[in-house]
Design a protein around this nucleic acid. Structure first.
Lengths: 204, 204
DNA sequence: GTCTATACCAGGATAGAC
DNA sequence: GTCTATCCTGGTATAGAC
């Protein structure tokens, strides 16, 4: 890994726990193992490091949507049709995968915590945060459940309310198990309970 | 309002948007209309201001539980029995009240945003955050819905999963409509939709 | 591309006059 | 209880040697 990449890496770790303002350029340089002045050969300012992280995340989200078979504006309907025949256990497993990705993925977890911290000081960051973790997620799952209702897999009448009922508990548990001390296993168990309740409620 | 109270007031506003580290003692003093040095006649340090805010919130939460008829360790069962006969419209109104309280109450709204920002840098803050917005809320509502199932108002089988299904959308929408720019009316509308879907799903 | 040295400013906090 | 003046530390950033 290049020094530039290591700077981004360590900066993200620090930003996601102490926040942008709570992290000094010295902190980052120290974590990388260089002097703060050397860091300026790679980035012209602290802000530029932050912006690089946001750009990097956008790139990774793009890649992720392919790998995971997740949100992608063009392939939504096909995905919905594919998910039409999903079983309860498969839905539990998929939920756990998404949950663990947002919670623990080396990049995604720290990035989400960073945005959570920084959202209130900057309208632009707030918009990115809401787009990723709220609007896009709900929009995607609304299409998904709409299609599943149409196919007769579920019995709902309001695909959007259904999407919120599926996603909000995931979002809630993400925030609950964000702290380093809490046990992720408990989170997975609680998640499974919610998904099974969701299926029980909406099954035909 | 005394100068000391005004300091707490302005500090909370600043902490809840820029964070603790992002707010200087000079910023606070300026907002109050005094010099930063004068501030030290009221508080011995910046940290003491923060701690005063947390204590103040604890005091207000206590008062709130009486006014609102909300979480209170001793009166839970009585509350559950009282809520046994609640109608759908009453549940919508109650949800909106709680939502608006956590979102807009002059103290509670800013306090929640402050904890949201500061939770990752301090285990103790994280514990307070989770206790207030996750554990206590869910525990209280689990008792509530458990009693309502027992009384035959709702048809659920898992009171805890039900509590999460009721509360998680509220938590999700709180976070979604936290930004200053978004329209609270939209949030209330979305909230109502979720509560009505909740009732539709769990009604006998 | 890393280092040392340095400039410059802002932040937290104290002393002492009024 | 507010002010001015001051201290010290630490933060961002640049210059220049190696």
């Amino acid at each position: 890994m290049s020094t530039k990449e290591r700077i981004v890496e360590e900066a993200l770790t620090l930003f996601s726990s102490r926040g942008y303002q709570g992290t000094s350029v010295k902190n980052i340089a120290e974590a990388v193992g260089i002097k703060d002045s050397s860091l300026y050969k790679h980035f012209k300012s602290k802000k530029e490091i932050f912006e690089t992280i946001v750009e990097e995340m956008a790139r990774r989200m793009e890649a992720m949507s392919h790998t995971f078979g997740l949100p992608d504006d063009t392939s939504m309907e096909e995905a919905a049709i594919a998910y039409g025949g999903i079983t309860e256990n498969e839905l539990v497993e998929l939920s756990k995968k998404v949950f663990l990705f947002y919670l623990q993925d080396p990049f995604a977890g720290r990035f989400r915590r960073m945005l959570t911290i920084e959202q209130y000081r900057d309208q632009e960051i707030a918009a990115v945060y809401r787009k990723i973790y709220m609007e896009d997620s709900i929009r995607y799952q609304t299409v998904l459940f709409g299609e599943m209702i149409r196919q007769g897999v579920f019995s709902g009448t309001d695909a959007r309310a259904m999407a919120v009922n599926f996603y909000a508990p995931i979002f809630f548990l993400l925030n609950k198990y964000d702290g380093g001390d809490s046990d992720v296993e408990d989170g997975l168990e609680e998640l499974e309970r919610q998904v099974r309740e969701f299926v029980r409620i909406y099954q035909k």
